[in-house]
Simulated scan of single mutants.
Amino acid sequence: MSTGDCVFCAIAAGEVAAEKVLETPDLVGFLDQRPVFKGHVLLVPREHVVTLPELPARLRDPFLAAGQRLATAMVEGLGAQGSFVAMNNTVSQSVPHLHLHVVPRTKGDGLRGFFWPRHKYADDEERAAYAGRIRAALEKS
């Protein structure tokens, strides 16, 4: 796959629309189109990197720091009790571009093991509202 064929590269470049919640020169965080729970964010490096072992050393700390900020934003911005943070490398990686899932969690929310039910947003306005709440929480951190 060339980077021209990568949807996450296209989102990072602004060529494909996504509800972005975090942007730095090296990273982009945006709402998952098929969220496990509303507010589910994918964090990606702008540079096309397929797996965690391939992530350049200069991006390791910024990537993890952004993941920490997003996990905090789940609680402060969405009122979640915590978060589920995960990534796949090759196996079960639906888009071959490194991405960290940051999912808001609440006790009793029904997520068990690795079965990930999906919850749709009612409409674009609801999606934008969730993104706005996460962005607002990120601005405080």
Score class of each variant (00 low, 15 high):
2 S>P: 11
3 T>Q: 15
4 G>D: 14
4 G>H: 12
6 C>I: 08
7 V>A: 07
8 F>S: 02
10 A>M: 09
10 A>S: 10
11 I>W: 01
11 I>E: 00
11 I>V: 11
12 A>R: 00
12 A>M: 04
15 E>N: 06
16 V>N: 06
16 V>F: 03
18 A>Q: 02
19 E>V: 00
19 E>F: 00
19 E>A: 10
19 E>Y: 04
20 K>C: 10
20 K>N: 02
22 L>F: 09
23 E>W: 06
25 P>H: 05
27 L>Y: 02
27 L>V: 07
30 F>K: 00
31 L>S: 02
31 L>Q: 02
32 D>Q: 07
32 D>G: 11
33 Q>P: 03
33 Q>N: 13
35 P>W: 05
36 V>M: 13
36 V>N: 02
37 F>Y: 12
38 K>D: 04
40 H>A: 05
41 V>Q: 00
43 L>C: 03
45 P>D: 09
46 R>T: 11
47 E>D: 12
48 H>F: 08
48 H>W: 07
49 V>A: 08
51 T>P: 04
53 P>I: 07
53 P>H: 08
55 L>I: 12
55 L>G: 10
58 R>W: 10
58 R>Y: 07
59 L>N: 10
61 D>S: 09
62 P>D: 06
63 F>E: 00
63 F>W: 08
63 F>C: 01
64 L>F: 13
65 A>Y: 03
65 A>R: 15
66 A>L: 05
67 G>S: 09
67 G>N: 01
68 Q>W: 07
68 Q>T: 12
69 R>N: 05
69 R>Y: 00
70 L>Y: 05
71 A>F: 04
72 T>K: 06
74 M>N: 00
74 M>K: 04
75 V>I: 15
76 E>M: 04
76 E>C: 01
78 L>V: 11
79 G>W: 06
82 G>D: 05
82 G>M: 11
83 S>Q: 07
86 A>K: 02
87 M>R: 04
87 M>F: 15
87 M>K: 04
88 N>W: 03
89 N>K: 03
89 N>R: 04
90 T>M: 10
90 T>D: 12
90 T>Y: 09
90 T>R: 13
93 Q>E: 11
94 S>V: 14
96 P>D: 10
96 P>G: 09
98 L>C: 09
98 L>K: 01
99 H>Q: 09
99 H>A: 09
100 L>A: 07
101 H>V: 04
103 V>K: 01
104 P>S: 12
105 R>W: 12
105 R>H: 06
106 T>E: 13
106 T>P: 05
106 T>S: 14
109 D>T: 08
110 G>N: 11
111 L>Q: 14
112 R>D: 14
112 R>E: 15
114 F>V: 14
115 F>I: 14
115 F>M: 15
117 P>E: 13
118 R>G: 07
118 R>I: 14
119 H>V: 15
122 A>H: 12
124 D>I: 05
124 D>F: 09
124 D>P: 03
125 E>Q: 15
126 E>C: 10
126 E>N: 13
126 E>R: 12
129 A>H: 03
131 A>L: 07
131 A>K: 02
131 A>N: 03
131 A>M: 05
135 R>Q: 09
136 A>M: 03
136 A>R: 10
136 A>E: 14
137 A>P: 01
139 E>G: 05
140 K>P: 00
141 S>R: 13
141 S>A: 15
